[in-house]
Design a protein around this nucleic acid. Structure first.
Lengths: 297, 297
DNA sequence: TTTAAATAATGAATATAAATGATAATTTGC
DNA sequence: GCAAATTATCATTTATATTCATTATTTAAA
C-alpha cells in the first residue's frame, strides 16, 4: 500500500528547490546518503517514478510534478498547524467558551470581553447560554471553560471566584403608579405585568426571594429575550421588570426608567465565575477572571 | 521541535471516531499498546495536551479538537493523492505532450485525439509546434512525449511507427489554367504563386523533391499559417498550394478545389509517430499510437 | 583526452523509532 | 465487590532511518 508521508513531500519539495541531493540534504539536516536512500525508498513504496536521473541531477517526472504541487499545497498547512500548536502549548491561543447563567450579565460581559480581546489577540471568545445539564454540568463536561453564574456550587475540581456584587431592583416607567416609592412590597406587584427573561420562575430571584415567600404572583408575566426590548416596554408603561441596578443606570440615559428597591432591604446578588481546576495553567483563562474582577485591567 | 505527521492525524481522527484505543487500534492495524505509546508520544512530541483522560476513554482537549478538524481537512487529501498516484503508476493518468513537425497533420491529429480523450479520461493532451532543437531534440529532452513527423530519425532510445501514408498533391482553383491536367511538371510551376506554411524551403517536399532537382523556383511564394485561409486563397485563384490529398478531399465539399499529381509518379509521404523507448510501460502513451494508426479504435 | 572536483549510489554498521506480548492497573456496569 | 473491558507499563523484538566509508558517475577545465 502506498503510504504518502509528510516526509516524502518535504523531500520532493526540497530536492526540487535545491536541484541536488547534497544541497537538499543540508536544508533537511540529513546527509546525502540518507536522502539518496530515502529517494529510492519513496519511489518503490509509492510504486511511481518520481524523478528522472539526468546526469547527476534529478528531474521530476509528471507524477513528480504533480506531487510537488501537492507538497506546495499541503506542507504550509502543516507548518501553520505547528505554529498554532505552539500557541496552544504556550496558552496563547484558545477558544474561551463562556457559559452564561445570568441573563442580564450579558451587558456586563461585553464590557469585560472588549479589553480582554485586546489583551489576548489570539484568543477567541464564544458565549453559550443553553446547557443540557446546567452550567455546572457544562463546565465539568468541558462544554464551556468559564461559567458566569449567580449560583456557585462548590464541587471538587471547580473554582469559583466572585467578580461583582449588585442589587436587583424594580424598574418602572416614569408614568407608572409605583414610581416615586423608596421601596416596594410584594403586595404592590400583585396587579402588575412582570416582564422577565424566558427562564423558569425558580431561577428568578424576584419569585424565589420575594413573591413566593409572600404567596403572591403578579397579575401577568411576559417573557422577553432581549434587554433592550424589555426596557422599551417598561419605559412605555407596558410592564415592570427586575434587573441589576447598574444595568438600569446604564440604560437610564436612553430610556425613561426609574428603579426602586425590592423590599425594605433590597435583593443583593453576587456574580461568580466558575472554572475547572484542571485549567489552572491556562494563562489566558485565568486572566479572564482577572479582567472580570477588575475590568479596567 | 514539533513534527506533526500524517500518522498523528490518523491516530487523532481514529481515536476520536472510535472512542477507545482498542477499537481505534483495530482499524489502524495496530495493537492497543502500540496506540497507547503513540498517543503519549504524540503529546510529548507536540508539547500539547491533546486528550483528557476521562475514566477509560480519551476526550479531546481544545488543542485536540482543533487538530481533529485539521485531520478531517488534510487526511482526505492524502487519500486522494494516493489514488492519483496509483493512476500515475498504472499509466491511467498523465499529460500527453504531442509535438508536431507536420503542418497539415493538425487536422488529422484532431480526428485522432477526439476518440483518444474519450478512452483516456484522465489523460490530458497538449500540442506543441516550436522546438529549439527540432522535434527529435524535443523528444530526447522530454519536452514532448510523442512526435508527429514525416522525417523519422532512427536513434537509439527512440521508436518510430508509421501511422499513415498519403500523397502530396497540387491544389488549384477550378478557373486555374493548370486545372484539368493529370499531372504537372516543374516547368509548369515557374510562373505560379506558391502558397506554403511558414516553414523553411528545405522542409517543403515540393522544393526538395520536385522544384530544386529541376532547378526551378516559382515566381512568387506566399506564407500562410492556417489551412483554411490557404485554401480560400487557392479557390479564388490567388495561388496554388501543395497539400496531402486526403486534406484537399476533406475541403473539396466546401471550396472549389481541384488536385493533381505532382510529377508523373507523384510525391508519396509517410507520417511517423516517434516516442521514447523509456516510455514503453506508459500504456496511455502506447495506446495513442494505436489510435493514430487505426483511428476508429 | 585526461584529470580533478562535484555529486550520486551503494552497502554494512549503527542508531532510532515503533510494535509486540505479557502483565499490571483502572474503570465500569451489574 | 466482582467480572468484564479497557488502558498503562515494561522488556523485547522488529522495523526503519541514518551514518560512515567507499565506489561510481558526471561535469568542466587543463
Amino acid at each position: 500500500m502506498a503510504i504518502l508521508e509528510r516526509n516524502h513531500l518535504m523531500i520532493i519539495q526540497e530536492v526540487a528547490r535545491e536541484g541536488s541531493l547534497t544541497a537538499a540534504g543540508a536544508r533537511l539536516n540529513l546527509t546525502q546518503p540518507a536522502l539518496s536512500h530515502a529517494v529510492r525508498k519513496i519511489e518503490t513504496q509509492l510504486g511511481v517514478k518520481i524523478w528522472r536521473r539526468e546526469g547527476r541531477s534529478l528531474v521530476l517526472t509528471q507524477a513528480g510534478q504533480w506531487l510537488l504541487s501537492l507538497a506546495d499545497r499541503l506542507l504550509p498547512q502543516f507548518s501553520l498547524a505547528e505554529e498554532r500548536l505552539e500557541q496552544f502549548a504556550n496558552g496563547e491561543r484558545g477558544i474561551l467558551r463562556i457559559g452564561m447563567e445570568c441573563h442580564p450579565c450579558y451587558q456586563w460581559l461585553l464590557n469585560v470581553v472588549s479589553p480582554y480581546l485586546e489583551r489576548w489577540p489570539k484568543v477567541d471568545v464564544d458565549v453559550r447560554q443553553k446547557f443540557q445539564f446546567g452550567g455546572i454540568g457544562a463546565l465539568l463536561s468541558n462544554e464551556i471553560d468559564i461559567l458566569v453564574t449567580p449560583d456557585p456550587l462548590y464541587k471538587p475540581g471547580l473554582i469559583f471566584t466572585p467578580v461583582f456584587d449588585y442589587e436587583l431592583v424594580l424598574v418602572v416607567g416614569s408614568s407608572h403608579k409605583l414610581h416615586g416609592l423608596t421601596f416596594i412590597t410584594p403586595e404592590q406587584l400583585a396587579d402588575e405585568t412582570l416582564i422577565t427573561y424566558p427562564v423558569p420562575a425558580e431561577r428568578l430571584d424576584i419569585y424565589t426571594q420575594f413573591l413566593q415567600p409572600a404567596g403572591i404572583a403578579p397579575r401577568q408575566q411576559k417573557q422577553i429575550e432581549t434587554t433592550d426590548i424589555m426596557l422599551v416596554m417598561v419605559a412605555h408603561g407596558r410592564g415592570i421588570a427586575v434587573l441589576p441596578r447598574w444595568l438600569v443606570e446604564e440604560y437610564a440615559s436612553r430610556f425613561d426608567l426609574h428603579s426602586m428597591r425590592i423590599g425594605k432591604r433590597g435583593i443583593a446578588k453576587q456574580i461568580f465565575l466558575g472554572r475547572r481546576e484542571a485549567d489552572e495553567d491556562l494563562q489566558y483563562l485565568k486572566d479572564f477572571v482577572h479582567f472580570a474582577a477588575d475590568p479596567q485591567g
